[in-house]
Nucleic acid binder design. Structure first.
Length: 602
RNA sequence: GCGGGCGUAGUUCAGUUGGUUAGAACGCCUCCCUGUCACGGAGGAGGUCGCGGGUUCGAGUCCCGUCGCUCGCGCCA
């Protein structure tokens, strides 16, 4: 007989009755009845009830086992009587009568309960993560994550992609988020950076002739954390040669849709996945209709522009008119069938808008012929009719207004759209609603400085290429830049890349960078463009966010085995730590700490 | 860097208008119990109320500061 186990704790059934077996696992629960004693033994596969029968000499030693100790038991499988079988357990038809029991590793008193969720705080769970990971929900989440990644790999290989590794120690890049830096001992004063994404390497692989790359790529960004943002995370990183934007979509849609179909019933509630091809929504349209570049399409509400109504001469609502005169816009959201809602429904939304920094959330309720509400009196019948036409409002509907300069109005309208949907409880349930947001602008104007800069990836190909760069207002130039959005989450961002050095030079010049900058910062890739570069493009999917959606978890840390807290510290490992003076000397580094912030971190 | 919330037993929490010896559940320890499966029963241990200062006859409770955790803003091409 094997030293530790002949079966797992989830394996034994009626067929095994009469067999002599050995099981190993953790003491999940103990029920001591004096003469007879039950131990639920747990491993990652399940639970088995093990029995110390009356008169057994084991009763004293087994009775002392603490929860979460690791034990090995040997015994015979017996069928449970019908009145003692447990239909809730997979192994509930049998139990193992112990002949021998070995305490392999005694557990101290545990800091929180494993057998049940006792609501222990996240700091405790992270400090004792190995205990937390023993719990049923975490076992489920981590297994889900592993099978999702296996499925992704299988689907990508089946789609003709090859998986690559790219460097972890690489060069800091000037754009984007803050880099994690690693001092280079052999090169005093110089640093490696951990990759924010393998962006340049995957493009260089295209230049190397591999035409379908993917990687489950670790990415590192030194920005402040959020519930859905970690210092280290994983992307399904993808790049393809000789493709158009539509090729990228039609290649990735079946992979992602298939993945979502496969895992969409993980929580027990089967969810419908948007049929491919997914809707493609231009960025500007998304900002107008949804007030967001990551719209939640489960929300049926849409935003329309009603600036023309409030600009009419017969409308005397000065609060809006003054903003329109300065170039502002008015956006409207129709909320269907809310005229019977109590006044508090509208007041709450108004209070919410004030909390968002707006003066309020104006509205008109169309009960019958004429509109009611605080600003209805400023709009004569003809203007109200025009408003109803544009907003497609009917009797019983309300229309909410946001007025500001265009970008701010769009964003607030987007938040209001989400808030009204939540308050009305009309978000569609049981679905994954996908879309691609396309035609992102190539450039944007910095609000503070007024300087034109890249709005997304500087390596994106501008639509119209050189001609657009030469002839158009930079702010009107669109890029082959796209996002994949699901239920309001940005799952993926990508682009068709700019593989032409002369177009790249021009594109960087508009953003204020000379050729020297390109050579200094992206020299390796810029050189490669001069030796035969295929047209190429790709994208990167946030794997953790995908797993979050499947697991229906609100927090990224629930789908990682080992993870840092919100301040990017690991309470279990003690990272980050102070290092010895010798280590710093090796690296030619002296620290210059803020005085009030010195903590004894070891 | 900024803002909100939280901080009381090992864990999760309650704690009234500022007033006797700070409670509950789970866990832990001792004992009882032959069929439980969240077993049941009796008893017990366990607290610098995050820390520091202040107001007060009296502070877990009020005020100030500080630290920690958490959510968000900024940031995240």
């Amino acid at each position: 007989m094997h030293a530790y186990r002949t079966h797992t704790c989830g394996q034994l059934r009626k067929d095994h009755v009469g067999q002599s077996v050995r099981l190993s696992g953790w003491v999940h629960r103990v029920r001591d009845h004096g003469g007879v004693l039950f131990v639920d033994l747990r491993d990652t596969h399940g639970l088995t009830q093990c029995v110390v029968d009356q008169g057994s000499s084991l009763i004293e030693s087994v009775g002392k086992w603490r929860h979460e100790s690791v034990v090995t038991i040997t015994g015979s499988v017996k069928a449970r009587r019908p009145d003692t079988a447990n239909a809730k357990m997979a192994t509930g038809d049998i139990e193992v009568y112990m002949d021998a029991a070995i305490l392999q590793s005694a557990a101290d008193v545990i800091p929180f309960q494993v057998a049940e969720d006792d609501g222990a705080g996240e700091d405790m769970r992270l400090k004792y993560r190995y205990l937390d990971l023993r719990r049923e929900k975490m076992q489920r989440n981590i297994r889900l994550r592993n099978t999702v990644i296996a499925s992704i790999r299988r689907r990508m290989w089946e789609s003709g992609f090859q998986e690559f590794n790219t460097p972890i120690l690489t060069a800091s890049s000037p754009e984007g988020a803050r880099d994690f830096l690693v001092p280079a001992r052999l090169h005093p004063g110089k640093f490696y950076a951990l990759p924010q994404a393998p962006q340049q390497f995957k493009q260089l692989l295209m230049m190397s002739g591999f035409d379908r790359y993917f990687q489950v790529a670790p990415c590192f960004r030194d920005e402040d954390g959020r519930a859905d943002r970690l210092a280290e995370f994983y992307q399904l990183d993808v790049e393809m040669s000789f493709v158009t934007q539509d090729d990228v979509f039609s290649t990735m849609e079946p992979v992602i849709a298939g993945l979502f179909e496969e895992f969409s019933n993980h929580t027990g509630e089967k969810r419908a996945v948007t049929k491919t091809p997914w809707p493609r929504i231009p960025y500007r349209e998304a900002m107008l209709r949804y007030g967001s570049d990551k719209p939640d399409l489960r929300n049926p509400l849409e935003i329309v522009d009603v600036t023309e109504v409030f600009a009419r001469e017969d409308v005397e609502f000065r609060a809006f008119k003054e903003i329109i005169a300065k170039g502002g816009v008015v956006r409207a959201i129709r909320a269907p069938k809310v005229s019977d809602r109590p006044r508090s429904f509208f007041d709450k939304l108004n209070d919410w808008a004030r909390g968002e920094g707006a003066p309020g959330l104006g509205y008109i309720v169309f009960e019958a012929a004429e509109g009611k509400g605080p600003i209805a009196k400023f709009l004569p019948a003809a203007a109200q009719a025009a408003l109803k036409t544009i907003a497609k409002a009917e009797a019983g509907d309300a229309v909410f207004f946001v007025c500001d300069m265009e970008e701010r109005a769009a964003k607030l309208a987007g938040k209001a759209r989400d808030k009204i949907c939540a308050d009305m409880d009309i978000r569609e349930k049981g679905v994954y609603k996908f879309c691609w947001i396309v035609d992102f602008p190539m450039y944007e104007k910095d609000e503070k400085t007024g300087v034109v800069q890249f709005s997304h990836n500087p390596f994106s190909m501008p639509q119209g290429e050189m001609e657009s760069l030469d002839t158009k207002d930079p702010l009107d130039i669109l890029a082959y830049q796209y996002d994949c959005v699901c239920n309001g989450f940005e799952l993926c961002s990508g682009a068709i890349r700019n593989h032409k050095p002369e177009v790249m030079e021009r594109a960087f010049a508009i953003a204020g960078y000379g050729v020297e900058t390109i050579k200094a910062k992206f020299g390796g890739m810029y050189n490669a463009f001069h030796y035969g570069a295929p047209p190429h493009g790709g994208c990167g999917f946030g794997i953790d966010r995908i797993v979050m959606l499947f697991a229906d978890e609100p927090n990224l840390r629930e789908v990682y085995a080992f993870v840092m807290n919100g301040a990017f510290e690991d309470p279990m490992m003690g990272a980050p730590t102070a290092v010895s003076p010798e280590q710093l000397r090796d690296l030619h580094i002296k620290t210059d700490l803020p005085k009030e912030k010195i903590k004894a971190t070891g």
